[in-house]
Amino acid sequence: MKVKTFLYSVYLDILSFFRLRIAVFFSILFPLLLFIIFSAIWSADNPNYVGFILPGLFVLMGMSEGLFSIGPVIKEYFSSGRIRYMKFMPVDISYFFISFLLGRMLFFIISVLLLLVLSHFIYDFNVWKEMPRYLIGSISSLVIFSLLGLCISFLSKKDTGRTLTNIVYFILMFVGDIFYSMTNAHPILKFIKELLPTTQLLSYMRHENFSVLTLLIWFITLAVIFRLLIHNLKIPRTI
């Protein structure tokens, strides 16, 4: 694999992203804005709130990136017929996916770091101590939600894909301890909450008890489903 070509391909993926203003807003500015608003409201009464909301925002960013960006874009490679050209280019087809994913991963990590820098300057939050845990948790959320985004995109038809993604996104967001703790929720809701990857990822980043097994099951199941979907996919002839 030619390094220069690979790096240029990653650069183009990042460039494409920066040219989409709405994507930049929701991936960078929106989490920063949420952080400022939520922490301004709650951190006065609760000094630990910054340590609570930051993991929530990292998982939220992973969800947005995976469900609304990575999944649909890779699906588009197939549905637009672009894959037919990639097959006949002088590099392996995975080259394009890897460069795209790496571009998004870099972008995601920059967004995470920006949020950490902001929390340090506004609330003097101990960034260095938490950074390894936050990075591992954030990247794990990106991987799991990207797989979930891919499965939803490939499972759904063109018109229903966006709706289904929105439903999953809001369920995960409101049931998953992102902005507030659901300790007083109904037992059934609490049971469902424990099964969600958001809860386990957040628990890990918040130094609470978490289940690696639940995360592994999510990862393996989604990876297997995605592999099966790709295997059985028919490449359409026209856009």
């Binding site: 017929g81 672009r82 037919r84 856009i239």
Partner: peptide, 10 residues
């Protein structure tokens, strides 16, 4: 072929 392999935004 029919359709193009390029991103519209590039």
């Amino acid at each position: 072929l029919d359709g193009y392999p390029f991103s519209n935004i590039l």
